[in-house]
Design a protein around this nucleic acid. Structure first.
Lengths: 342, 342
DNA sequence: AGCACCGGGACAAAAAACGTCCAACTAAGC
DNA sequence: GCTTAGTTGGACGTTTTTTGTCCCGGTGCT
């Protein structure tokens, strides 16, 4: 069922919206018994005229009966509502979830794909597709887009497709190299994205975690300083979100720091920063690439992560309050709202 | 899957059309490899401008890539087409089937609901719903609508809903009473329809099968003559289609006539007439109610019947060539086209 | 270099959607 | 029986969207 809706959404993006609207109206009419146009318009939050068009439609379909004294649901209408129920539950679950998360954290947009990335690889692909799609809609011309590494971001890169405004864009890594496999490096992903989207890219050939002295000396190098300035001038950043401890291990953070993170209750990691449960930044190492102040200045901060296990981490990062767009999956989204309630 | 599409069609009637259109375009682009807008417009049969809007949409969705040299399908697009295939097969199967039957028999409209009425009661309900819907669209104001009996027609009556133009309509039985149960009598159905649709009705209290003398004497009666004239003035008739032998038995036709029908290869029955394989009328008993010449004069002749077993009968009646609209189910429709091929 | 085809910008005409008001009608309360 | 608050459906000007039509600067093939 999800599969079908998913396919249809690609050919008819406002299908769910229209269905949602009409279902809401029909449902309202049913619970109201006998109701008038204006009253109904109020309660579903539509202007009288557009509601009238919808009512005409429902009448045409024989789903409602309308008399001079008001309108009521017909037998067919009641039947349809019943059959619609399971569909709507799926349909609305996600859109409602999106809206709930969006408004609570004050985001611009939330996109939830069905499933759980932890369990199903297909969901992870969907996440990538959704991420690519949102990026495609947000980019302007000749923009610089900073990206991080990770398997989710790799999926996003894979699903990018050429779009005219992207032709002049630069893709750059948000940070230096990590101890991960090549395919998941920010550098690799930036270049993949550029190739897929038909844009250009620049790389940052430095390790991400450095001591203070090494950091200072590297920043002296004019080439490196130049590319870093370029990166920091990006107006769009697309990043993954990870679990703090998992990321610390993967990054080969030294034992003392790891222990310190654990003590402070580190929960999430995003673009090199660690966050606790309340969204506070815990660990601030001298960083090559984007700094948190750069993030705050961005036009579009797009976070992409999914899987039930990442739910808490995502919530922490959102709490920090710099995100604009979140792309996640159903399992993670439920975790996020569950944390809101507790 | 059918279930979902079916529900959606009630809330978004042009969903299938839009999906069909976009699928066709996308598919064309795929098989063409690299193709231009104008060339494509020709081959899918759309004006350049509307195709352009569609292309913009597909580009927006990232399903195609468009360069100065033309457009080609993207990875996502190809993927979508693959996933779309089973859906389209269902979607198009029926619409294609409809068009095939429509054009072959020169009908105005053919509506096919999925399933087999012989097997599933749900399909029969769908048939009724579709029949009611087509009737609702066809009726004008203050019209007379003649209806026959049968279980399918009962289903149509059940699914009728009030519509403003129907308020002034008269529902009348097309023929006299049969030896069937009360619920399936044309009289009963006419009255049910009138109640459901908010119209009025008149009844014909006469047995349908009579000897010549009895017929003549009945026609002398002014009340009966008046109502029969009224019935014959109808401009819309909605009728079921039955298998000849089944109907003969149900009507308690006398053994000799039954044998004669069998000898002549009677296949179908509709509004009291029997048809052979080639659509010729076999048996013409003196009839109370609509005569075949009245049928030919009608504005809208709507035949409604479904079930694999009725396929051949439907084809026979269609062949006679007086039908305007056919409402049937998938199983019957396939039987009809199979007979076209053989 | 020539040519046939390409995408996309531009713009007026046509169509659809929308906001707004009003007349005729209905049900209920008093 | 009358008032009143509520209803539908018609009408109409305005705004928005869609559509038809040209044309311009490119691209790729020959």
């Amino acid at each position: 069922m999800r599969e079908i809706l998913d396919i249809q959404k690609q050919l008819l993006p406002d299908l769910v919206d229209t269905m949602k609207k009409r279902y809401t109206i029909l449902h309202h009419i049913m619970v109201s018994g006998l109701v008038g146009r204006r009253t109904l318009a109020m309660s579903v939050g539509a202007t009288e005229r557009v509601l009238r068009a919808e009512v005409d439609f429902l009448k045409e379909q024989g789903l409602i009966e309308v008399e001079a004294s008001g309108m009521r649901i017909s037998v067919s209408g009641r039947e349809l509502l019943e059959r619609l129920e399971p569909l709507v539950k799926d349909l609305f679950g996600l859109t409602e979830l999106e809206e709930r998360i969006r408004s609570h954290f004050g985001l611009k947009q939330v996109i939830i794909v069905p499933g759980d990335s932890d369990v199903s690889p297909h969901t992870k692909k969907e996440l990538g597709r959704a991420g690519a799609s949102v990026l495609r809609k947000l980019v302007g011309e000749d923009e610089t887009i900073a990206v991080t590494g990770g398997s989710t971001m790799a999926e996003v890169a894979y699903h990018l497709t050429p779009a005219t405004p992207m032709k002049g864009c630069w893709f750059v890594p948000a940070r230096g190299g990590l101890g991960e496999s090549v395919e998941l490096q920010a550098n690799t992903i930036a270049s993949t994205m550029a190739k897929k989207a038909g844009g250009r890219y620049r790389l940052l050939h430095v390790p991400d975690h450095l001591g203070e002295e090494a950091y200072q000396s590297l920043m002296q190098d004019s080439h490196i300083a130049e590319i870093i300035a370029f990166i920091r001038g990006a107006r769009i950043v697309v990043h993954g979100i990870g679990e703090a401890m998992v990321m610390a291990r993967r990054r080969k953070v030294d034992p003392e720091t790891t222990e310190s993170l654990r003590r402070d209750g580190a929960l999430a990691e995003a673009f090199g920063y660690y966050f606790d449960r309340d969204g506070n930044i815990l660990h601030k190492m001298p960083t090559i690439g984007l700094r948190i102040e750069d993030i705050h200045r961005m036009d579009h901060v797009i976070g992409i992560a999914g899987g039930k296990s990442k739910g808490e981490s995502i919530a922490s990062v959102l709490k920090h309050g710099h995100e604009d767009v979140l792309v996640t999956d159903e399992a993670a989204a439920w975790e996020v709202v569950n944390r809101l309630l507790s």
